[in-house]
């Protein structure tokens, strides 16, 4: 299925790719990431139970340190 990740179209296996898996397969540290699914922020505790659907749009914002 096709989804958009950070504005780029990508092919993912149909069904059952969760937000948790999406974050982890990209090598991101979950605690440092903000996830938006179709313009809505999804709290981290919900990532394992939210599966991507075709045409979804995901933004992954991974922070590095420094303030």
């Amino acid at each position: 299925m096709k989804v958009r990740v950070n504005g780029r179209e990508e092919s993912l296996p149909d069904g059952n790719v969760t937000l948790q898996e999406l974050v982890e397969t990209r090598g991101l540290v979950p605690e440092r990431v903000v996830v938006e699914l179709n313009l809505e922020v999804i709290p981290r505790e919900h990532w394992p139970t939210v599966s991507l659907q075709a045409e979804d749009s995901v933004e992954l914002v991974s922070f590095v340190g420094g303030g």
């Binding site: 540290v29 605690e31 440092r32 990431v33 903000v34 981290r44 991974s62 922070f63 303030g67």
Partner: peptide, 12 residues
Amino acid sequence: LDRPEDKSLLVS
């Protein structure tokens, strides 16, 4: 903020 974990939590 300084730490990336704190940044992502606050921004969310």
